[in-house]
């Protein structure tokens, strides 16, 4: 309860501000309607009724978004193309595949960077440069290329996800693999420890806290990548967002937006749980 109270307070404030903003932003339409019907302008007291349940609001009200969210998840069969559960699943599968690819690539690159001077000099600057290119610009081009080589939409999405998620893993793992101090390395030297054992017994375990810190960033980045990739696709939360904006379905956009936020929170939380478990088993829990 202690911990819930501040979170709930903030939530309440957000909802209140949101309602106020909805009234304010949807009011011009209400005034406009009244003017067209040659009626008197609505009073302040009438405004909430006229602004919070519009069909095509500029900013849908919280309860509209909430009911749209419920309707499009619980109200429809998950297999239906209109169901948000269906679209969310499409997004998650791409996210997880991309995350797995990105994390694997990130770890491999980090190992290369730590063990190979040439890779240290060459890979890291390029990895940093890769993150400077706005993904929004890159995604459509990648989609065209992937299409040309006959990749499925899932594969395309995963590649873009991986593109975003490998970077935090590289940075974190390089730091983690280098985290053992000189004394710990010297100790292994005194046993004439082969390099492979230095990696498996010292560097890799030492890097675990860094790895999990990166993973939490990477999983969120993967989700962003998947959604951006879906802006060029037929299914997934990204596709829903774009369709919503084509047809002026602001409520649908917001519902999809909220679902992605919830997904991101769940994924990061899951990563946190796994982190807690693993570090605890390793005796390194904070």
């Amino acid at each position: 309860m202690r911990r819930a109270a501040p979170i709930l307070t903030v939530l309440l404030i957000i909802v209140a501000v949101w309602y106020a903003a909805a009234i304010w932003m949807n009011a011009p339409w209400a005034y406009d309607q009244a003017a067209r019907a040659e009626q008197a302008a609505p009073t302040l007291l009438q405004l909430p009724g006229l602004t919070l349940d519009q069909d095509r609001p500029v900013l849908p009200s919280p309860h509209q978004v909430f009911s749209e969210l419920v309707k499009s998840t619980l109200g429809l069969a998950p297999s239906s193309k209109k169901s948000l559960v269906y679209h969310a699943w499409v997004t998650i599968s791409g996210t997880l595949l991309g995350f797995a690819m990105g994390t694997t690539l990130g770890v491999l690159l980090a190992v290369g960077i730590v063990y190979n001077r040439a890779m240290e000099m060459s890979v890291l600057p390029w990895a940093i440069a890769s993150q400077m290119v706005p993904i929004i610009a890159l995604a459509p081009m990648l989609a065209v290329v992937m299409n040309a080589v006959g990749a499925t939409p899932l594969m395309t999405k995963a590649v873009i996800s991986a593109y975003l998620s490998f970077f935090p893993v590289v940075v974190g793992m390089v730091k983690g693999l280098r985290s053992p101090d000189a004394m710990q390395l010297d100790l292994l030297q005194t046993y004439a420890t082969p390099g492979s054992a230095v990696f498996w017994k010292l560097r890799l375990p030492s890097s675990m806290p860094y790895f999990f810190a990166s993973v939490k960033v990477a999983i969120a980045a993967s989700l962003v990548g998947a959604i951006v990739a879906e802006l060029n696709q037929q299914a997934g939360l990204g596709a829903r967002l774009l369709q919503g904006s084509y047809y002026g379905q602001t409520t649908q956009i917001w519902a999809a937006l909220f679902l992605s936020a919830i997904l991101a929170a769940v994924l990061v939380m899951l990563a946190g749980r796994i982190e807690g478990r693993v570090l605890k088993r390793m005796g390194m829990a904070r």
Partner: peptide, 25 residues
């Protein structure tokens, strides 16, 4: 056998696990 100024035990290994380290290697 070298003993440094700081114990330098691996936090992720138990005491027995730490002592096993050179034996494993």
């Amino acid at each position: 056998g070298y003993v440094f100024q700081a114990a330098g035990l691996y936090p992720w290994r138990t005491i027995a696990g730490n002592i096993k380290l050179p034996l494993e290697i």
